[in-house]
């Protein structure tokens, strides 16, 4: 344990460099650069509002914010876990040549996406002010879902990055599974408005949905949902512990498969 801390300190700078690299290269060749982080969620929000407002958001002026909160969190979760999953393979060149603690790679992938995600929250702030959804004291509760989604993504990312080394086709399976998560995360509809008697459990077991619920509560000035908080906390830390465990158990075998 003590060795792990010393080792982490030594490679802290590498972690920073890798995060920097991901962010820099992502926007290097686009004309608008980092501005895309803001434009992209804004544009999808407009499209989704246009398409779904007649169906789900009738008469609700804050509907775009409802969509935006769900979409921002979901997009972070999906891009971060996908990037982590590929991180060991895409850094195979380094891993085969030099010793580096391997968890650095999925960590850097998740954290670089987290930085981009935090930047994109600016859009949420602006849209909220424009649509006159003013922050209340409950806004400080947003810190909980924001931390939980990072823990969850790190944990799931470690599980996926380990498995993806041994099974290449996991990428396709995970995309399908992500679609399932997206549709059960209530991004553009409200669970209460749907007639889905008997199927609520699907939402209750989806950790991402439970995180989004509390994020929305914080934005719209409502107290936190206790069940959602406890469930998503347990799930996120659980996934991180499991992720670390299977990663450490298997990391010495990675090099034989990449």
């Amino acid at each position: 344990m003590k060795n792990a801390v010393i080792n982490f300190k030594k490679y802290r700078y590498l972690l920073k460099e890798l995060i920097n690299k991901d962010i820099k290269l992502k926007y290097r060749r686009s004309y608008l650069g980092l501005l895309w982080t803001l434009l992209e969620p804004l544009l999808t929000m407009i499209v989704l509002t246009f398409v779904f407002s007649g169906l789900f958001g009738r008469g609700d002026e804050s509907y775009p914010i409802y969509i935006l909160t769900g979409r921002l969190l979901y997009t972070f979760f999906s891009t971060a876990t996908k990037a982590s999953m590929k991180s060991i393979r895409s850094n195979a060149g380094m891993i085969k040549k030099v010793y580096v603690p391997k968890y650095i790679y999925p960590f850097a992938s998740t954290l670089s996406n987290y930085v981009i995600f935090l930047l994109s929250l600016i859009v949420l702030i602006v849209v909220s002010l424009v649509l006159n959804v003013m922050p209340t004291l409950y806004i400080f509760n947003a810190i909980f879902p924001l931390i939980l989604i990072l823990i969850l993504s790190l944990g799931v990312g470690m599980i996926l990055s380990t498995l993806a080394v041994f099974f290449r086709d996991l990428e396709y399976l995970w995309s399908v599974f992500l679609m399932f998560i997206m549709y059960t995360s209530a991004i553009f509809y409200q669970v209460e408005k749907l007639k889905i008697a008997g199927k609520e459990w699907i939402f209750n077991i989806n950790p991402l949905y439970n995180i989004i619920v509390n994020f929305r509560n914080a934005i719209f000035g409502r107290p936190m949902d206790k069940y959602a908080l406890i469930y998503s906390t347990c799930f996120s830390f659980g996934s991180l512990i499991i992720g670390m465990f299977i990663f450490y158990k298997n990391q010495d075998k990675f090099i034989l498969h990449i």
Binding site: Y13, L14, K16, L18, K21, K24
Partner: peptide, 13 residues
Amino acid sequence: ENIYLYGAVLGYS
């Protein structure tokens, strides 16, 4: 940029 990246991989500060 690779000097810094590769240097970090080798554990330099």
